[in-house]
């Protein structure tokens, strides 16, 4: 179904690929649990949110808005805007998901930034087995962290000061570099970053990231330059 090489990766490769991040995700889950508890969300609601929403930035945004006495509507709006990027991300993985409807649904729910990026095989293809392995690993880590944070947050303290917030951009950078195969992908990256940074001061969180996906429209410019170079490895 896919070419040899990266296409042969299994779900175990997916587990391995996100393992470095799983510890950071547990730590972030603890941070979220601590924040959500302090925001008056109770014990069960934050855990249910990690199980259903499974998207860190949106959950942090919702909890912090509720914590400062913001309205339900503003918490929902912020979280939904932050998750809007999963619409184009879902379209990008769709052709690679060939199973039954429930298998596609399951893979779709496990598609978050990190699992999407490690499952990418280039030229718009994604490995569903890697997505599954990476997704289950991060899902377990996120929920475990949330439970720990909600239950023992006052004992273990908030781990966000440990530099975990730098672990995520570092991982995204490590996943970005192999994607930069040709001039066109470099241009898309530069345009994406520029749009996101330019909008950050002026728009609600989430808009900069979703607007950055417009960087991929560079692909429409001319067809001759669209051929990616041969893969070196």
């Amino acid at each position: 179904m896919s070419e040899p090489g990266r296409g042969d990766r299994t779900s175990r490769d997916g587990v391995r690929a996100v393992a470095p991040l799983a510890i950071a995700v547990v730590g972030f889950g603890v941070s979220y649990g601590v924040l959500a508890r302090a925001a008056g969300m109770g014990v069960l609601a934050p855990i249910v949110m990690s199980m259903t929403t499974f998207a860190g930035s949106a959950q942090f945004a919702a909890a912090s808005i509720l914590g400062v006495g913001g309205t339900v509507a503003s918490a929902i709006t912020a979280a939904v805007l932050l998750n809007a990027r999963y619409a184009p991300i879902g379209v990008s993985v769709a052709p690679s998901l060939t199973g039954t409807w429930w298998s596609r649904f399951l893979h779709a729910q496990l598609t978050v930034d990190e699992t999407w990026a490690v499952a990418a095989e280039g030229e718009g293809r994604f490995n569903p087995r890697v997505l599954l392995g990476a997704g289950v690993t991060l899902y377990a880590a996120w929920i475990a962290g949330t439970v720990l944070g909600v239950a023992f947050g006052d004992v273990i303290g908030d781990p966000s000061r440990w530099g975990l917030d730098a672990a995520f951009p570092a991982l995204f950078l490590a996943l970005l570099v192999p994607q930069l195969r040709d001039r066109r992908s470099v241009e898309a990256a530069v345009v994406g970053a520029a749009i996101a940074l330019a909008l950050t001061p002026f728009t609600p969180a989430g808009i900069p990231i979703i607007a950055a996906s417009a960087g991929c429209l560079l692909g429409l410019r001319s067809r001759s330059a669209a051929r990616p170079e041969e893969r070196s490895s």
Binding site: A94, L97, V190, A196, A214, G215, C216, L218
Partner: peptide, 30 residues
Amino acid sequence: GPMLLGGKALPPRVTVVVALLAPALLAALV
């Protein structure tokens, strides 16, 4: 996306665009 388009190949022009979504979004996330 996966429920509506799952398993179907996207038109070639769309594929070229979607292939650039990874670098554009990852750079924005960084």
